[in-house]
């Protein structure tokens, strides 16, 4: 039956180019038979599939991601308010204004502080706990290194903050820092540190440190799990060899574990830096207005409350540049030869 069909259509002349073009826009099912047995059909079928499958994702991506990013750079050069359709091209005025804007400098300073300290603290704690989980166990027979008992339990609990919405985390900690009915002041009272109690944790200079603490708190578990996986991938023989050579725990960590997990640490560092540059939800929910700003929350205020869309996009461009410089710096500084094992 099929052979018969093929014989019949094989004799027909090749499909015209117009027909091929039409077939490109038809589902395979409705492809005319003449096209189907054309020499060029295979190619057409493949390109049809490729373009159909890419069309929707590309369209959505171009409309809602690429186009706003490109527009942002343009609007940052205008005095657009966002409320009206008109705007003037003002060159680099917005950036000049940013340079002299004390509140922006403060926000930038806070963001940079988070960018430097949050990865440092979080990754150090993460590495420490991960090493304890993987190497803190009692020696069993003939084992150079062993994990502690119940390490998966520890990992489950440590990971709790990571699965919660950052909004939930922010609400919980806003209550903890609350001066009168909050857990922190109460806890300080219980352990006898009454002098450390604060009238206003989140309203003054302490706010940025409070945000830093919450940021680190919520990400430590993530890095314990990440580093723990990286550490358990290191072959045991390497530990055994180092132990035979008389290496202690500290040496083992700094000479073996740290260098062998460096790739993971570096990518984790960049990831944490990007998280620290965000911190919007924490500041927006926890810190009362005018208490303290980071770059994203300042951008939000300018764009939404003050109707200064052009100026806000300029802030966005600065945030992008900071992110870019940070990532490139980390990639360059931390480059080492990858160690295969």
């Amino acid at each position: 039956m099929e052979a018969h069909q093929r014989e019949r259509t094989g004799a027909s002349p090749p499909a015209s180019t117009t027909l091929l073009a039409v077939a490109f826009f038809l589902p395979p099912r409705f492809t005319p038979e003449r096209v189907r047995y054309d020499r060029r059909y295979r190619k057409l079928d493949q390109y049809r599939f490729i373009s159909w499958f890419l069309a929707a994702p590309l369209l959505i991506y171009a409309l809602f991601v690429i186009s706003p990013f490109v527009q942002a750079f343009f609007y940052s050069l205008t005095d657009w308010s966002g409320n009206s359709a008109t705007y003037n091209f003002t060159g680099f005025d917005n950036y000049e204004r940013l340079w002299n804007d004390d509140k922006f400098r403060e926000a930038l300073g806070n963001s940079v502080l988070l960018l430097v300290l949050a990865p440092l603290i979080t990754l150090a704690l993460g590495l420490f706990f991960a090493f304890m989980l993987n190497a803190g166990g009692r020696h069993r027979k003939n084992q150079a290194i062993s994990g502690v008992f119940g390490s998966s339990f520890y990992k489950i609990v440590y990971f709790f903050p990571q699965v919660l919405s950052i909004a939930i985390v922010a609400v919980i900690w806003a209550r903890i820092y609350s001066p009168r009915s909050g857990a922190l002041n109460e806890g300080l009272g219980v352990v006898g540190l009454d002098s450390w109690r604060q009238e206003d944790w989140l309203g003054g200079d302490l706010a940025i440190w409070c945000v830093l603490a919450v940021l680190c708190w919520s990400f430590v578990g993530f890095y314990v799990v990440l580093f723990s996986a990286a550490m358990s991938a290191i072959p045991r023989e390497i530990y055994e060899a180092s132990l035979l050579d008389g290496a202690g725990r500290a040496t083992t960590f700094f000479r073996i574990t740290f260098p062998l997990t460096w790739e993971t640490i570096r990518t984790g560092w960049i990831y944490m830096g990007i998280q620290a540059l965000d911190a919007f939800a924490l500041v927006n929910i926890m810190v009362p207005e005018h208490g303290m700003d980071v770059i994203p929350s300042y951008l939000y205020e300018k764009a939404i409350r003050d109707a200064q869309a052009g100026y806000a996009t300029a802030i966005g461009v600065v945030l992008f540049l900071v992110t870019l410089v940070f990532s490139v710096l980390m990639m360059r500084l931390g480059r080492r030869d990858r160690i295969e094992f």
Partner: peptide
Amino acid sequence: PVFLALVP
């Protein structure tokens, strides 16, 4: 960063 795109 998503904040760059937010206003547009």
